[in-house]
Measured scan of single mutants.
Amino acid sequence: MTEYKLVVVGAGGVGKSALTIQLIQNHFVDEYDPTIEDSYRKQVVIDGETCLLDILDTAGQEEYSAMRDQYMRTGEGFLCVFAINNTKSFEDIHHYREQIKRVKDSEDVPMVLVGNKCDLPSRTVDTKQAQDLARSYGIPFIETSAKTRQGVDDAFYTLVREIRKHKEKMSKDGKKKKKKSKTKCVIM
């Protein structure tokens, strides 16, 4: 069974824990209790493949930012979460993405942009803004509501699919490099 290491990042209060708990335990946590770091595991079937999701729910508070490099190193894919009623959390996505790329030393890291709290009427981040940002990053965008469960499975499952595509691409690139290195030079 394939294991996928997913990391949920975003500013404090955007609903990272609520999304994760909704996926794992099928219930909505409405009281806000700032996370330092929590880890969850769940076995699911995605596109006919049974897999184990190892999900790291991270601290959004700035005082825990020193811990970010460590979990970013171990993560295979990242859910970059903002709240649709919090423009600052949307603007912060850029910083999370840049930090992930720096730590992973790669421009090509599996990510999904997630606009959470889409059940709320007080939207300050337009869907088109988020779609445009995701398009500019070359990553999928999904709106979710941890409260109603809308888009929750889709967000995590899409990230797994992005990781699969990335692994497939990397193995193809690896095979191309191996083929090239088999060419021999004969000096007579």
Results as ranks from 00 to 15, higher is better:
Y4P: 09
G12M: 04
E62N: 10
E3H: 10
Y4K: 14
L52A: 09
D33F: 04
Y4T: 14
T50K: 10
P34A: 13
V44M: 09
D47A: 06
V9H: 04
E31S: 13
A18H: 05
D57W: 00
E49T: 12
Y64D: 11
G48L: 03
V29L: 11
T58F: 02
G15A: 00
V44C: 12
D30H: 09
T35E: 15
T20L: 09
K5V: 03
G15K: 00
V44F: 07
P34S: 15
R41L: 01
E62R: 05
G60Q: 14
L52I: 11
K5Q: 05
A59T: 15
G10N: 00
Q22A: 08
Y40E: 01
D30I: 06
I36H: 00
D33N: 04
L19W: 13
K5S: 04
D30P: 11
G48Y: 05
K16G: 15
L56R: 09
F28K: 02
V9G: 03
V7D: 00
D33K: 01
S39T: 11
Y40K: 03
I36W: 02
I55Q: 11
V7A: 07
Y4C: 13
V44S: 09
P34T: 14
D54V: 03
E62G: 13
V45P: 11
S39K: 02
V8M: 06
S17I: 01
E49G: 08
L6R: 01
F28V: 05
E63R: 03
E63A: 04
D33T: 02
L52P: 05
Q43R: 13
G15L: 00
I24G: 05
D54R: 03
G48D: 09
I24Y: 02
P34M: 15
L56H: 13
A18C: 06
T58W: 07
F28D: 01
G48C: 03
I46H: 10
R41G: 02
P34I: 14
K16M: 15
E62M: 07
D54N: 08
I55F: 13
Q61F: 08
V45G: 12
S17P: 00
P34L: 14
T35Y: 15
V29D: 04
E63S: 08
D47L: 02
T50H: 10
G60Y: 13
G15N: 00
L6S: 01
E37W: 04
H27D: 11
H27K: 13
E62T: 08
D38M: 01
H27R: 13
L52F: 06
K16H: 15
G48M: 04
I55W: 15
D33R: 04
D57E: 02
G15T: 00
V8C: 06
E63G: 06
V8T: 01
E49S: 10
G15R: 00
L23D: 06
P34E: 14
E37N: 04
P34W: 14
T58M: 07
I46V: 13
T2Y: 06
F28M: 09
E37R: 01
S17Y: 01
C51W: 10
G12Y: 04
D30F: 08
K42S: 07
T2K: 12
A11M: 14
E31L: 10
A59Y: 06
R41N: 02
D47R: 05
T50R: 11
G10M: 02
E3V: 08
L53N: 11
Q61R: 02
N26K: 12
G60F: 08
I21H: 15
H27F: 13
G10L: 00
V45H: 12
E63D: 11
V8E: 01
T2N: 12
A59F: 06
E63T: 07
I24D: 01
D57Q: 00
R41S: 02
C51K: 07
Y64L: 06
Q43Y: 09
F28W: 11
V45E: 12
E37C: 10
D47T: 05
K16A: 15
T35A: 15
